[in-house]
Design a protein around this nucleic acid. Structure first.
Length: 651
RNA sequence: GCCACCUUAGCUCAGUUGAUAGAGCAACUGAUUUGUAAUCAGUAGGUCGUCGGUUUGAGUCCGACAGGUGGCUCCA
């Protein structure tokens, strides 16, 4: 009898062959087999029902279990197939595109791009989901076959699946791996692995319907994409659903309205923000923090217009490369002007306004510069993606030998500011020029090498671990992107520190060096928030609207229990205002519970509850927004606490 | 811009098979003077997104457009 030797988690055993992977695992550990979905055999991902034939070599088998990331990926991928199978059953003639598992998108777990005989609507999703559940119950096996490419192409030609054929043609080798599910019309071109049968899929849900271009190219036809998610257990799916509801509660558009922070109205234009007084207070505090840091770090403050002559944008290259995102030109006295989509050319104008010596560098110009971009309507999203926004912009004009120190300072700046907001997890990505690729990179090789080395060494010096991404640099220079993780684990791309070999060249920037010759300065674009509107949106969601004291539009709510106390309340409020705090006094004739509820819903950090007792004793009763009642104290004591919190910008 | 869905009072939403608009909260007025998340009563508030069509009759059916939402492409 032939046999093979299997190494399973360090144990070796001879097993009669042929045997399936599942059969082999069973010889070692029946319990592990129960939660195993697929396996790695000699490092290769395979299905459990793959047959192993006799061999002299030792075969290593590692299980892929449901409780691992690899296992989840198998579940999600299999769920996408189950979806396709259900869809084919309900809508015969549906053409399939691609249907991958999504592992890094917190919103979804998989999708499938399809073209159904009629456009699917949201009402179809529950019907399809029901069919999926019915199929899951039947424990239908997923079967894999490797077939010669030409035959596979014939199969999909017969089934009239032109998109799949295109994929197979492009991706398959001599043989193509296909999957089918028993008792279903479904056949797919796919490497796997999958769960052994549909019964292993216990917790899945269809979520959303959208359009998606074939191969992600807007020039191609648009298909329908159905999003869903799947987990190993119902408990995990429930937890995910709960997390999703939590994110919805934090939606900046909802909170922006409830807390009266900003509004967007079609009357003024899509994607244009009206900052209300309370939003304005927060913005002002955000800018105050920035201003302090900019001053400390030797930046100067500049102000530039919102519009400039068209010729300027020709010189800068925006007319050539960016015109689609710019508002159309407007004319006065036969001269054309365009709204600015970026601030850089203006700062360059300031640099060029007089001759520069090497002693003058670095020049650091900062500006909260408002720019306008003609974004497609479908891309707009609340305050996060708009058509007019302000960039916390700065441009540094530096000598080559200064790049390193300037970048270190930029990194330091970013970390300090984001820490103040309570973002402890700041991620950095260094994007460099990929080798061998020709993306039309500008600038000399030596400059690139030097610039990339300086960015890397700046990151190293500041002790920052970062991801290095080859080939992601802009055509005009390498960059460091800054990303932060918010309170519920979502990652936001914000600022960037970007070297630019293009604009100094285009505008012929120079400075006179010690050798009395003209040299070209390096230019660094630097923004921490990217857009203050967007960052404000991130903050709203990060804090769930409960801004720390230093940012809160109303810092203290003074709540008298009866009308008798109103005068005392106004006196206390007056003293707080005198000390520089933002205070609202509620003298309505509501009960104290209602006043507290009001203040609580407005997420005011501190409430002062004032009744006869407080009036008599000349004290205040303090309620903190999260802790609740924290007892009586003197106004002086309270002032000391909040003054300290405010100055420290405590969270 | 493209695909799907949505649009009724400031906000959140009802409005059955077509018969001249309804609630809660908010606002305002009055009563109440209250001890840690909603006191009671009253008043006011809407060309049902816009335009057109079907119909004796449209918030309701059909069409176009606008805006919004979720995505795609793009992106701060």
């Amino acid at each position: 009898m032939s046999q093979l030797v299997v190494n399973f988690s360090g144990n070796e055993r001879a097993i009669p062959a042929p045997v399936t992977v599942a059969g082999a695992i069973k010889e070692f550990d029946r319990d592990v087999l129960k939660k195993t979905l697929a396996a790695k055999v000699n490092g290769e991902d395979v299905d459990l029902n793959k047959e192993l034939s006799a061999t002299d070599q030792i075969i290593s088998i590692e299980p892929i279990t449901a409780d691992t990331r690899d296992g989840l990926e198998v579940i999600r991928h299999s769920a996408a197939h189950l979806f396709a199978a259900a869809l084919l059953d309900l809508f015969p003639g549906t053409k399939l595109g691609v249907g991958p598992a999504l592992m890094d998108d917190p919103r979804y777990g998989f999708y499938y791009d399809v073209i159904a005989p009629r456009n699917l609507t949201e009402d179809d999703l529950p019907v399809i989901e029901k069919k999926m559940k019915a199929m899951a119950k039947q424990n239908l096996p997923y079967r894999r076959e490797e077939i010669e490419k030409a035959r596979v192409l014939d199969i999909f030609a017969e089934r009239d699946e032109p998109l799949k054929r295109e994929l197979i043609d492009e991706k398959a080798g001599d043989n193509a791996s296909i999957y089918y599910i028993d008792n279903s019309e479904f056949i797919d071109f796919c490497l796997g692995p999958h769960v052994p049968h549909t019964g292993k899929l216990k917790a899945f849900k269809l979520l959303a319907l959208s359009g998606a271009y074939w191969k992600g190219d807007a020039a191609n036809q648009q298909m329908q994409r159905i999003y869903g998610t799947a987990f190993a257990t119902q408990e995990e799916l429930d937890a995910w659903t709960k997390q999703r509801e939590e994110a919805e509660k934090r939606d900046h558009r909802k909170l922006g309205r409830e807390l009266d922070l900003f509004s967007i109205s079609d009357e003024f234009g899509q994607g244009l923000i009206l900052w209300h007084p309370k939003g304005g207070i927060i913005r002002n505090e955000m800018e105050r923090l920035l201003r302090e840091e900019l001053e400390n770090r030797g930046y100067s403050f500049v102000y530039t217009p919102h519009i400039a002559k068209r010729d300027l944008w020709v010189t800068s290259g925006h007319e050539g490369n960016y015109a689609d995102s710019m508002y159309s030109p407007t004319s006065i006295e036969d001269e054309e002007y365009r709204l600015k989509p970026m601030n850089c050319p203006f700062h360059i104008g300031i640099y060029k306004s007089s001759p520069r010596s090497y002693r003058d560098l670095p020049q650091r110009y900062s500006e909260m510069g408002t720019v306008y971009r003609a974004e497609l309507s479908g891309t707009l999203h609340g305050i996060m993606r708009v058509r007019g926004f302000s960039v916390d912009d700065a441009h540094l004009f530096v000598r080559p030998d200064q790049v390193h120190a300037e970048v270190v300072d930029c990194l330091d700046f970013a970390i300090k500011v984001f820490e103040t907001y309570g973002f402890d997890n700041v991620k950095f990505e260094l994007s460099v020029r990929g080798d061998a690729e020709n993306k039309g990179y500008l600038g000399a090789d030596a400059d690139w090498a030097q610039a990339e080395a300086q960015l890397a060494s700046a990151l190293d010096q500041r002790g920052i671990s970062y991801d290095r991404i080859e080939g992601e640099a802009a055509f005009y220079g390498p960059k460091i992107d800054i990303k932060i993780e918010d309170a519920i684990g979502r990652v936001w791309q914000l600022g960037t520190i970007q070297l630019d070999f293009n604009l100094p060249e285009r505008f012929e920037l120079e400075y006179t060096a010690e050798d009395n010759l003209k040299h070209r300065p390096f230019m660094i674009h630097r923004a921490l928030f990217g857009s203050i509107e967007r960052f404000f949106g991130v903050l709203i969601e990060h804090y769930a609207g409960a801004f720390p004291l230093w940012l809160a539009p109303v810092q203290v709510a003074v709540l008298p229990i009866t009308d008798r106390i109103n005068d005392y309340a106004l006196e206390i409020a007056g003293r707080l205002k005198g000390a520089g705090f933002r205070v609202e006094t509620n003298t309505k004739s509501d009960k104290i519970g209602a006043k507290i509820r009001d203040a609580q819903m407005q997420k005011v950090p501190f409430m002062l509850i004032l009744g006869d007792k407080e009036l008599e004793e000349g004290k205040i009763a303090v309620r903190e927004r999260k802790q609740g009642d924290i007892g009586q104290m003197s106004l002086e004591e309270f002032l000391e606490t909040i003054t300290q919190q405010k100055l420290a910008r405590s969270l």
